[in-house]
Amino acid sequence: MSHTAHIPSHRKPRRSASKLALRAGVAGGVLGTIAVAGAAGPANAEPVTETIEMPTLGSLDAGSGLASAVAASAEASQQEALDQSLQSQEDQALQKAAKDAKKAKAEADRKAEAERAEKARAKAEQERKDAAARASRDSARTQLTSTSNDSGTGSSTNDAPTQAPSGAAAAIVAFARAQVGDAYVTGGTGPNSWDCSGLVQAAYRQANIDLPRISYQQSSMGTSVSLSNLQPGDILYWGSRSGSYHVAIYVGGGKYVGAQNSATGVVERSLDWDMPSGAVRLF
């Protein structure tokens, strides 16, 4: 017999072959003792025991709380990053809107300045034309006065004897005088309101003569005649012949009929009241 036959074995049994018995007070957080009984070995072998500290419920709750806190922190960080991204996008949008608004205002100011400059230019051009027309009328008046004085009559066109129109001229003059007192309306062609060229066109229609609608087109027709050699029915114009801005009909006796403006309407006036620039004859 071996001299070691009665010596108890101190070898630890294999845990994989043992049956674990858990007796742990988890709810109270107490320590559990696991008794490991050897499945093999001598019958009289001394039991080997191990003491293992099991996690308590408190420690489990603490771990779960820590995980929740980590998750909440991560979510808060993600939300903060998202908020910062949105704020950055909003700031960029505001900056772009402000830039676009500034650019639009600058463009609007530029256009407004261009329009003011164009209006000023047009006004200056109109004033220049008006001054030229007045100078032309003054020159014609001077010429008429000089011609009258040279003839020894000592009278002006206003004092000329009334001429009796006949034929086409009679129809034109009669129609024009019949409209005296009617209203002046821009673009008016009758029967009770006229503008200057509309009245002249309608009067000449009585003599079966078709005229263009616009004043400068009417003054460009026929033959040019001097203001000292007018006949009833002649077309008087103000401005240049190819660029007149007003027309009327000479009715004899140094007078004309024309649709002047919205304040006066259709009137019969002396040439001296507003001396025309020239005249044309169509028959």
Rank of each mutant, 00 (worst) to 15 (best):
residue 118 E to K: 11
residue 121 R to E: 11
residue 123 K to F: 00
residue 130 D to A: 09
residue 132 A to Y: 05
residue 132 A to N: 06
residue 133 A to N: 10
residue 133 A to Y: 03
residue 134 R to Y: 01
residue 135 A to K: 05
residue 135 A to F: 01
residue 136 S to G: 12
residue 137 R to W: 05
residue 139 S to I: 01
residue 142 T to V: 05
residue 144 L to A: 10
residue 147 T to L: 13
residue 149 N to H: 11
residue 150 D to M: 12
residue 151 S to V: 04
residue 152 G to Q: 12
residue 154 G to Y: 09
residue 159 D to M: 13
residue 161 P to H: 08
residue 162 T to H: 06
residue 165 P to Y: 12
residue 166 S to V: 12
residue 168 A to P: 15
residue 168 A to D: 15
residue 169 A to F: 03
residue 170 A to E: 15
residue 172 I to K: 05
residue 172 I to A: 07
residue 173 V to I: 13
residue 175 F to T: 00
residue 175 F to R: 02
residue 176 A to T: 07
residue 177 R to D: 06
residue 177 R to M: 07
residue 179 Q to M: 14
residue 181 G to Y: 15
residue 181 G to P: 12
residue 182 D to V: 01
residue 183 A to T: 05
residue 185 V to D: 06
residue 185 V to C: 08
residue 185 V to I: 11
residue 187 G to A: 02
residue 191 P to Y: 14
residue 191 P to C: 11
residue 193 S to C: 03
residue 194 W to R: 02
residue 195 D to P: 01
residue 197 S to P: 02
residue 200 V to D: 00
residue 206 Q to R: 13
residue 207 A to Y: 14
residue 209 I to Q: 11
residue 211 L to S: 02
residue 213 R to S: 03
residue 214 I to Y: 09
residue 215 S to A: 15
residue 216 Y to V: 04
residue 220 S to I: 08
residue 223 T to E: 12
residue 224 S to F: 07
residue 224 S to Q: 14
residue 225 V to P: 00
residue 225 V to N: 06
residue 227 L to M: 06
residue 228 S to V: 06
residue 229 N to T: 14
residue 231 Q to F: 00
residue 232 P to N: 04
residue 232 P to D: 04
residue 235 I to D: 00
residue 235 I to Y: 03
residue 237 Y to S: 00
residue 237 Y to P: 00
